[in-house]
């Protein structure tokens, strides 16, 4: 199962939250387990991607815990010397 999504946000940190939220909502509403992601276009405020997932099956997928929300709490996305640093809290 595939879903193409486009997200936009005010800056790169909010874009990360918006993107993770797309994955969470797709997983919850379509009852799927996201497995791979293809990023088609990506800049500071916009992202287009395809999420590939398989249907949730209780006999094959063990539920450890459920992600309920991707939060803005102490959100950080910044470029550092050796690359990028991100901190995002997910509500369980």
């Amino acid at each position: 199962m595939h879903r193409k999504v486009t997200v936009e946000a005010g800056d790169s940190a909010e874009l990360l939250v918006a993107w993770l939220n797309e994955i969470l909502v797709f997983s919850e509403t379509a009852r799927v387990v996201p497995a791979s992601f293809s990023i088609h276009a990506f800049d500071q405020c916009n992202l287009t991607a395809t999420i590939s997932a398989e249907p949730f099956a209780a006999d094959r997928h063990t539920v450890e815990r459920i992600a309920k929300a991707v939060t803005y709490h102490q959100l950080v996305v910044e470029e550092r010397n050796n690359g990028w640093y991100a901190r995002v809290y997910i509500d369980l």
Partner: peptide
């Protein structure tokens, strides 16, 4: 023009 100590306080 509201200054936020944390975005989650928006």
């Amino acid at each position: 023009g509201i200054t936020l100590a944390d975005r989650q306080l928006c």
